[in-house]
Design a binder for these strands. Structure first.
Length: 860
RNA sequence: GCGGGCGUGGUGGAAUUGGUAGACACAAGGGACUUAAAAUCCCUCGAUCGAUAAGAUCGUGCCGGUUCAAGUCCGGCCGCCCGCACCA
């Protein structure tokens, strides 16, 4: 081989474009159903087209691409699509601020970002691209909405919402900051509005119990969903209201504390409260007060328990003649259980706070273990632990768990209570008073009520001639759009002007990718072949909502005949965030990494005025803190492969990754090092020979090759990309150090090493790998090359290094035959000078031998 | 408050799942090449003692335990991070 004195640098600009075109020309990544091959569906959470791609996208899509390319090389028929989560508020904000149409703004962003993603060299089947704002997509969403409506999976009801009086819109809870609208800054009001809901609670139990089937999901995400669904077993109990026919229904998980009840309380939104408020100005005032305070976290944190005595009395179900006062209390939620509770102050902290404030009796009914009843009192701290029932009539002496069952039976026999399971999960409100979303396809008719838009009239498209110069929903004030004839009676009627929550759009896009141009929401044959998604990858921020909604939607689709499975995502991986140090000027202004420079003294200063810069901790890249690095700049200066390599190196993919300049330049240096390595070997390096008379060093390299194949295969299967990267470095170091002898077998080993290295790197740095592949004289695309197979014989070492310990402390290592028997190993170990010296004069008590691992000598 | 996770060199992180702690990389320092710089190549790099050697001792947040053997298992602290939060 000839050493070339000055190898040129790897010219990524030319190479990356060239190989991207080659893949496209050869349709390498087009996916077609093929029943004869095992399929693999890799999906990354699709991006919102905000304008430009950010580092989070680069990390996400690099990981997905590694999996897609790896699986393809392993012989799978891979589906790896991309689309756009294109409806949403930012488009309307842009419309208001920049006077552009949301559609124009969105499609322009898609154009830009598609180009940027293509520069990354992702193995995506672009022929399947979809955008949720395209009527060709959302008409199917409307169709399914109507199917859900037919099946009773959608309903409309009045509900309390956060209303922004300036922007004239409903705000999500996350959009209310300290009681004010996040955009307008106006004090948010509670209003009752008629809203559409998806009946996700129908599936609460199933969504919870099926979590255990999702074995390829992170335990953390499953737990978060489980907590979110929040199942609790308890009882619904009907209390008699004194001097009335009405009953008060409450829900409790602690029927065992029923004898400790000292009051009942209902939510300010409870029907009984509203009824009473009609006759009591004072109560009405109290209820209004509760509404004004709202339920935002900050408020609840400090909010005192407050109540209003209704004057009504409630009959205790088991104690003759005992009655309890009924309060309206600010801490009782209408949305959970029945909106009414009984209060047992001794064993619930909230009830105790309330009782102490209003001077209500506190009767302990659960005695903690190893406590004397005479000395047990409750002061300001409720006892919520386990124990034995006291002061509880027929429950006395029973262990509290047993007591729950006994009293449940008693109530059920009496007919005044039933065992019930309650969930924290609420139905999913999907109405948004927004323009840029999927229109809800119904018509409101004065005579016929709610009439679905006839299916043949779908899609209900958004009108284009809308304005954003005034607050409120443009659909609502559009001159003609909402005025239609009732499809049922033909009289004048109005369209629904609310649009759907954008989470609806992303709840089924994965199914649409299977047959993106079908004139049905999904083509059953295609979906049956491709679904479920085998590997889904995205941010942990979607652990609950998006993933839960998708699980619900898939079930709803199954019920309406659009899906044949329940769980859309078989495997889930949640990637960490991309972080960067933060910089602030002396006056506290955030500075971008581009605005700072290291001065002669090694200090970071502002490029503008050379003033010192405060370096803050590494945080998620965000525009507000200006600690962002634009991926487009990086790809421009270093190429896509360098960016991809850096993304995969060092940090485990589920943890946060810190972006550093030295890290990216290190990755760039490595790209060139590889290029030089391959450049040293002219075209057509030696083909593997039949001669297997390897020298010891030949054998060593061959073993390394196969151990690397084995290791990287396992690493990529289990998302340990950082480990795979380290193995590549190890192999490259070894190849660099390898001195090939002047014979065919030695040359062949080197040849095998380089070839294998290139194939193994293919999924991670595809352009460079193609370039190297072609450089060593290979014809045909590496993208179509299959994954190397492991020679199992090469994984087994003839000799192993064994650690020798004395009383558990390492004293030396010896080299022994693999699986050598204990007596042989002992002999070698005890003859080892350092061991012999350490054991001088000691009598050996025990020797522990773990073959191929360790020999531990224990002396007296 | 409830639930969960994490804690290893100057830094990011490895560690065959109880068996040689620190792989690999970054940063740093030294050297070679060069008129010089960049690039590249070589060496050192957990701490302490020792001479920059041989060697020894200590060392995975802290304290204790189990074990022949603990970063890994158990108990108790400390610190950080995340999720939920008036859910009866």
């Amino acid at each position: 081989m000839t050493e070339i004195s000055d190898p040129p640098r790897y010219t990524f600009k030319d190479a990356e474009v060239r190989w991207q075109k080659a893949w496209e020309d050869h349709h390498c990544f087009d996916a077609r159903e093929d029943q004869s091959r095992p399929k693999y569906y890799v999906l990354e959470m699709f991006p919102y087209p905000s304008g430009r791609i950010h580092m989070g996208h680069v990390r996400n899509y690099t990981m997905g691409d590694v999996v897609a390319r790896f699986k393809r090389a392993r012989g799978f028929n891979v589906l790896h699509p991309m689309g756009w989560d294109a409806f949403g508020m930012p488009a309307e904000n842009a419309a208001m601020e920049q006077n552009v149409h949301p559609a124009a703004w969105t499609w322009q962003n898609i154009e830009t970002m598609r180009g940027q993603l293509k520069m990354m060299g992702l193995s995506i089947d672009w022929s399947r691209e979809i955008a949720t704002c395209d009527p060709a997509y959302y008409r199917h969403e409307q169709k399914m909405f109507l199917d859900f409506l037919d099946q009773g999976l959608v309903y409309r009801r009045e509900s309390w919402v956060n209303w922004d009086p300036v922007d004239n819109t409903v705000l999500a809870n996350e959009q209310v900051i300290d009681g004010r609208g996040w955009r307008s800054g106006a004090e948010v009001e509670k209003r009752q509005l008629s809203q559409w809901f998806f009946r996700i609670t129908d599936f609460a139990e199933e969504l919870r119990s099926d979590l255990e089937k999702l074995t390829r999901w992170p335990a953390r995400v499953r737990l978060m969903q489980e907590n979110w669904i929040g199942r609790s077993e308890g009882m619904r109990i009907q209390f008699k209201i004194c001097d009335q026919d009405q009953k008060l229904e409450i829900f409790t998980t602690r029927p065992d504390t029923l004898f400790g009840a000292s009051f009942c309380a209902i939510s300010p939104d409870h029907p009984i409260a509203s009824e009473l408020a009609d006759e009591s100005a004072e109560l009405k005032k109290f209820i209004d007060e509760c509404h004004r305070l709202g339920t935002s976290e900050a408020v609840l944190e400090q909010a005192e328990k407050q109540g209003h005595d209704t004057g009504l009395r409630i009959q205790h179900p088991f104690i003759q003649g005992k009655t309890l006062p009924l309060f309206v209390a600010n801490f009782v939620l209408m949305e959970y259980g029945t909106g009414a509770i009984f209060g047992c102050p001794a064993h619930d902290q909230r009830d105790l706070d309330f009782a102490n404030k209003y001077g209500l009796p506190v009767t302990p009914v659960i005695l903690p273990p190893n406590t004397a009843q005479e000395t047990f009192t409750i002061d300001t701290e409720a006892y919520t632990g386990p124990g034995i029932c006291i002061n509880s009539d027929f429950l006395d002496g029973l262990e509290f768990d047993k007591a729950k069952a006994v009293i449940a039976d008693a109530l059920e026999t009496q007919g005044t209570g039933q065992r019930e399971i309650n969930f924290r999960l609420r139905d999913w409100g999907i109405s948004r008073q927004r323009y840029w979303g999927c229109p809800i396809p119904v018509i409101h008719c004065k005579d016929c009520g709610i009439v679905p838009v006839p299916r043949e009239d779908l899609p209900v498209s958004l009108p284009e001639d809308v304005t954003f110069d005034v607050a409120g929903n443009p659909l609502d004030r559009h001159p003609s759009w909402k005025h239609v004839h009732c499809p049922s009676c033909g009289k004048a009627a109005q369209r629904e002007t609310d649009t759907m929550d954008t989470f609806v759009d992303s709840s089924w896009y994965f199914a649409r990718f299977c047959s993106p141009r079908s004139d049905q929401p999904v083509d059953q044959t295609a979906a049956d072949y491709w679904m479920p998604v085998d590997q889904y990858i995205g941010g942990i921020e979607h652990a609950i909502l998006h993933l839960l909604y998708s699980r619900f939607f898939t079930r709803a689709m199954k019920k309406t005949g659009w899906a044949s499975l329940e769980e859309p995502f078989d495997g889930l991986f949640t990637q960490g965030m991309v972080c960067h140090e933060t910089y602030q000027s002396e006056s506290g202004q955030w500075l971008s990494p581009d605005d700072i420079i290291e001065n002669d003294m090694g200090m970071l200063v502002s490029t503008a005025d050379a003033s010192p810069v405060k370096v803050g901790r590494s945080e998620k890249m965000s525009k507000s803190k200006k600690n962002v690095v634009d991926p487009a700049d990086i790809i421009e200066s270093y190429g896509a492969d360098t960016a991809r390599w850096f993304m995969l190196s060092d940090s485990p993919p589920d943890r946060d990754l810190e972006w550093t300049e030295s890290g990216i330049s290190g990755a760039w240096r490595f790209m060139n090092r590889l290029w030089r390595l391959v450049y040293r070997y002219p075209d057509g390096i030696i083909k593997p020979g039949t001669d297997d008379a390897w020298s010891e060093t030949d054998l060593e390299l061959r073993q390394s090759i196969h151990k690397t194949i084995d290791g990287i295969t396992k690493d990529l299967e289990s998302f340990r990309f950082n480990r795979a990267v380290a193995r590549i470095y190890e192999l490259v170091n070894q190849i660099t150090d390898f001195k090939a002898e002047d014979n065919q077998s030695s040359q062949a080993v080197l040849s095998e090493a380089i070839e294998t290295l290139i194939v193994l790197m293919g999924p991670m740095v595809p352009h460079l790998a193609e370039e190297m592949w072609s450089k060593i004289g290979k014809t045909g695309l590496l993208a179509n090359q299959s994954w190397p197979t492991v020679d199992p014989a090469m994984l087994i070492d003839e000799m192993v290094t064994l650690a020798v310990q004395i009383k558990g402390k390492l004293k030396g290592t010896i080299s022994v035959r693999r699986d050598a028997d204990q007596s042989e190993v002992e002999k070698i170990a005890l003859e080892e000078p350092s061991i012999a010296a350490a054991l001088e004069g000691k009598s050996i008590a025990q020797i522990i031998y773990v073959p191929n691992r360790i020999l531990n000598v224990v002396h007296a």
